[in-house]
Simulated assay, not measured.
Amino acid sequence: MPIDAEKAVAAEPRSTRISWGHKDVQLYHLGIGAGADPDRADPATDPGELRYTLESRLQVLPSFATVAGAGVVGGLSSPGIDIDLAAVLHGGQSVRVHRPIPVTGSAVQTSKVAAVYDKGKAAVLVLRTEAADDEGPLWTNDAQIFVRGEGGFGGERGPSERVAHPEVAPDRVVERPIRPDQALLYRLSGDWNPLHADPEFARLAGFDRPILHGLCTYGMTLKAVTDTVLGGDVTRIRSYRTRFAGVVFPGETLRIQMWTGENQVRVEVGAVERDGAPVLGDTFVEHS
């Protein structure tokens, strides 16, 4: 079996020093649609957008942590893992920030395979990365990666992330268009999986054309919640988790539904052009 679960989990964590600057942050924000908010009359110069795009006013959306360092694809080279990228789908993602991410910084990022679960027809890898700088912990990322065809090895099935759909109407609904070139721009932040750019590779993976990165949808959704519910203040965000419920194609429109509670926003995301086909489910933003 290409995945040796015992070897993968037992492997020593790998540490690397990472660094980033304002251009990395700006590129990431542009990749998730900053400067193009359809709710703003002039989004390129609106003060609410400049906090994502102008270096003198810049703040860092916590989902930036998902592209800092090696990213998800880098974690797939861990000991005990030898898989075909065409069989890989991103199943879920969580980010917890321990304090606001600085615009310019460096940190030691430690990566490991935290768990390998057996879902029958697929294996699920939980890839954990933790980053800390001289002042202490910055963030903890958990990526759940589905590897089709690698289940059935007799391992633990793992926890279920499913929660019941809200029975009441959402408190807020916004729509965010995805540019036709969104995946090409987003991948410049470090996720080079050809599934999101190469039509031939996408067909090998079972899609008729390249799909958008799940983490791009993830970032677009967090920005929408931040701007709509949190007054654009990224420092209020404590954690953010989602389950990737379906694919998105560049050129589509995201419908983002929000249910607000005490220190938490529940979110569901669907694709407008496909009758609201689910994109993100079981999604929660915890905030102060």
Rank of each mutant, 00 (worst) to 15 (best):
T45H: 15
Y117R: 07
I18W: 06
E55D: 14
T110H: 10
P47H: 11
N193H: 05
I81Q: 00
I83P: 00
L58Y: 12
I145F: 03
E150N: 08
V72E: 04
V9H: 09
V272F: 11
V60K: 06
E175L: 08
Q93W: 01
P38L: 13
G136L: 06
L61V: 15
L222N: 06
E200L: 14
V95G: 05
V116Y: 03
A271H: 05
D37M: 09
F201L: 00
G74Y: 02
L280E: 07
F146S: 07
C216E: 07
R241M: 09
V272A: 14
G33D: 00
R209M: 12
V25C: 14
G155N: 02
V116Q: 04
A131L: 01
E200C: 07
T66L: 03
A123C: 10
Y52E: 07
G35W: 05
G151M: 00
D142P: 05
V103N: 09
L204H: 09
H29I: 02
A131C: 09
G33L: 00
E273K: 00
Y218K: 05
T66E: 04
G214Q: 01
V60D: 03
T53G: 15
A123N: 05
I3F: 02
G231S: 07
Q144K: 08
C216A: 14
R40K: 14
T228L: 09
I145Y: 02
D233W: 07
A44P: 06
F207E: 03
F207A: 08
